[in-house]
């Protein structure tokens, strides 16, 4: 129901289904080798809505998330366990490598202030 607030990484584990957990493990391995520079390029698609300074103006900030949680959330949109259709379409075309690169990039950012 409250699809947006549930995005927050601290709460991700509650609604995530078993199917997501298995892909989660695979992705953590990718994240270790992920390329933040590639992630920065891919992030150009995210910043149209998610402000890169980390301010929350109605769309949850995604800067500074731990990489594993970032990937898990994207995976749960890809599997459509999370319901927001905008994020389902975005995550739907991200490969595991791309998710890992994005996660690695966003993990390096800090919210302004």
């Amino acid at each position: 129901m409250n699809q947006q607030r549930r995005l927050r990484p601290t709460r991700w584990c509650l609604p995530v289904a078993a199917a997501v957990l298995s892909s989660f493990v695979a992705c953590v391995e990718h994240a270790a080798a992920a390329d933040p520079a590639f992630g920065e390029y891919l992030s150009s698609e995210c910043v149209t809505c998610h402000r890169s300074d980390g301010q929350d103006k109605g769309i949850p900030p995604i800067v500074g998330w731990p990489a594993d949680q970032f990937v898990a959330v994207l995976q749960s949109y890809k599997t459509k366990d999370r319901t927001n259709p905008v994020m389902q379409t975005i995550a739907g075309r991200l490969s595991d490598d791309e998710m890992a690169a994005l996660a690695a990039y966003y993990a390096t950012l800090k919210p302004a202030n």
């Binding site: 129901m1 910043v47 809505c49």
Partner: peptide, 23 residues
């Protein structure tokens, strides 16, 4: 759709505007 979902969609709309203009 539920009023709650429509309200969340409006929050997204405002967030998108702030995001794209910053972008």
């Amino acid at each position: 759709e539920t009023p709650q979902l429509r309200k969340e969609t409006q929050a997204e709309n405002m967030g998108w505007y702030s995001g794209i203009t910053a972008d």
